[in-house]
Simulated scan of single mutants.
Amino acid sequence: MNQSFKALVVEETEDGQFKRSIREWNIDKLPKHEVLVQVHFSSLNYKDALSATGNKGVTKQYPHIPGIDAAGIVEESSDDRFEKGDKVIVTSYDLGQNTPGGFGQYIRVPGDWVVPLPVGLSLFESMALGTAGLTAAIGVHHLKHNNVEPDDGPVLVTGATGGVGTMAISILAKLGYQVTAATGKTERESFLKSLGASSVIHRDKVQDQSGQPLLSARWAGGIDTVGGLMLDTVLRQTKQGGTVACCGNVLGHELHTSVYPFILRGVNLAGIDSGYSPMELRKKLWKRLASSWKPAHLKKISQSCSLEELNQKIDNILEGKQVGRTVVDLNV
Rank of each mutant, 00 (worst) to 15 (best):
F5C: 04
L8H: 06
E11S: 11
E14G: 11
I27A: 02
K29S: 07
K29R: 12
K29T: 05
P31A: 02
K32H: 10
S43L: 00
N45Q: 08
A49W: 12
T53A: 02
G57T: 00
V58Y: 06
T59M: 00
Q61T: 03
H64Q: 04
G67L: 07
A70C: 11
A71W: 02
D80K: 15
I89F: 06
I89A: 00
V90N: 00
V90W: 04
T91D: 10
S92E: 07
Q97S: 04
G101Y: 10
R108E: 03
D112C: 09
L123C: 01
S126D: 04
L129R: 00
G133Y: 07
G133M: 02
L134G: 01
T135F: 05
H142D: 13
K144Y: 15
K144H: 10
N147V: 13
N147P: 10
D152H: 14
P154N: 13
V155C: 03
V157C: 10
T161C: 14
G162Y: 14
V164R: 02
T166K: 06
T166R: 13
L175F: 14
L175T: 06
A182V: 04
A182G: 11
T183E: 12
T183F: 15
L192W: 14
G196T: 10
R203P: 01
Q207V: 15
Q212S: 08
Q212N: 14
L215P: 02
G221C: 09
I223S: 10
V226E: 09
V226L: 06
G228V: 09
L229G: 05
M230Q: 11
M230K: 02
D232K: 15
D232N: 11
T233W: 14
V234P: 03
L235M: 08
G241Y: 12
G242N: 06
G242P: 13
G242I: 10
G242D: 13
A245G: 09
G248N: 00
L251I: 05
H253G: 15
E254Q: 09
S258I: 14
P261Y: 15
I272C: 02
I272M: 04
P278K: 07
P278F: 14
R282K: 09
R282C: 12
S291I: 07
S292E: 15
A296R: 03
H297Y: 03
K299Q: 07
S304C: 08
S306Y: 05
Q312L: 08
N316C: 13
L318D: 02
E319D: 11
G320P: 14
K321P: 03
V323P: 09
N331Q: 10
